[in-house]
Amino acid sequence: MIPAPAFLSNPERFMAFSRWAAPMFGVVAVVLALAGLWLGFIAPEDYQQGDTVRIMFIHVPAAWMGMFVYACLGGASFLALVFRHALADAAAQAAAPLGAAFTVLALATGALWGRPMWGAWWVWDARLTSVLVLLLFYLAYMALRASLDDETKAARAGAILALVGVVNLPIVHWSVNWWNTLHQGASVFRKGGPTMTVDYLYPLLLLGLAYMAAFGSLWLVRIRAEVWRRRAEAAALRAARG
């Protein structure tokens, strides 16, 4: 049996941990974002893309987070499905809206970057289409959870759907290698290291870490909300039964 982290299997310990961890991650996110934005706006214009290169600093981290959050959703769903950890299910449920928001942001900022560079807001390119499919998995997960009154059934059905969607993650990542796409290939997480100049790499990485810290903070807040919701609903049920 794979041991789950202690705070995932013990709600009291999780609530104690998240009480200080959530604001701490929030502060880290703000500091990293300010540093990343500063470096991003003192970086020189790109020789080909001009100032539009600054959209990269907010678009690429959003795309990373869309995928990373889905991996978290998949991992939490696996723990919830196999080990029946209630907190893992709460974590999966809490991650989905945040992941959907990051994916919407990636698609929207990508369109705003694509229009001046490609001459089109949208193309049915493998990368864009697979990210759209990622968004549809998030939306389907949330819709499925909302449509079932029975929490146990909703958790199981949602977890299965989330795990099916994990198949899409390598497709998103390698779509630019497997197909001939308009979207550029990987320039940071690739064999041989990043290809971009440090003028762009440092702000990009700082903002990537800022997005990650922001997600960490908001995820913890939403899991706490989910724990309270379940407590309140359990108490309401007990009260109704007398």
Partner: peptide, 14 residues
Amino acid sequence: DLDPGPYAVYIWPA
């Protein structure tokens, strides 16, 4: 550099 010139219409909305 807060003046993106002709690309302001894409950068600031993003």
